[in-house]
Amino acid sequence: MSDSTVTVTRVVPADADRAFRAWMDPAELARWWWPQWPDTTYEVDARQGGRLRITAPSAGVGVEGAFLEHDPPRRFVMTWTWVDDPAAGVPADAAVDTVEVTFTPGDGGTEVTVRHTSSGHDGGDEQGWNDVLDRLPGHLAS
């Protein structure tokens, strides 16, 4: 199965430095990443080769990754693995995705673009999910 990439873009009302920092500072992440789950923990080693780990035990979800590229305030690329059971850590057969985030200065703020590439490791449901989700960008952009 070939890779699939999802691209999502938003303009945020801040300069690139500030926007980049919102992703790298655990205290800032806590304000916007999963604020609905107060037990979420945020660990970020913000450098190339450094790791990021966000876990929400109460929700039974987490993400782990490592920075493949770290180029503030323009861009970072990281590995991305969903963790279903934060206490157990990353399962051996987990799919490893890649997430690239770019920060482009523009009028009225910074364009933040996320490109999430899945290896298709999970297969199966992906097409069905895409069909459902293709209806969402319009809704989310409004």
Binding site: R10, W33, V112
Partner: peptide
């Protein structure tokens, strides 16, 4: 989409 909306709100 959800996360970037919240990032924009945060910033």
């Amino acid at each position: 989409g959800n996360h970037l909306d919240r990032l924009a709100g945060h910033l």
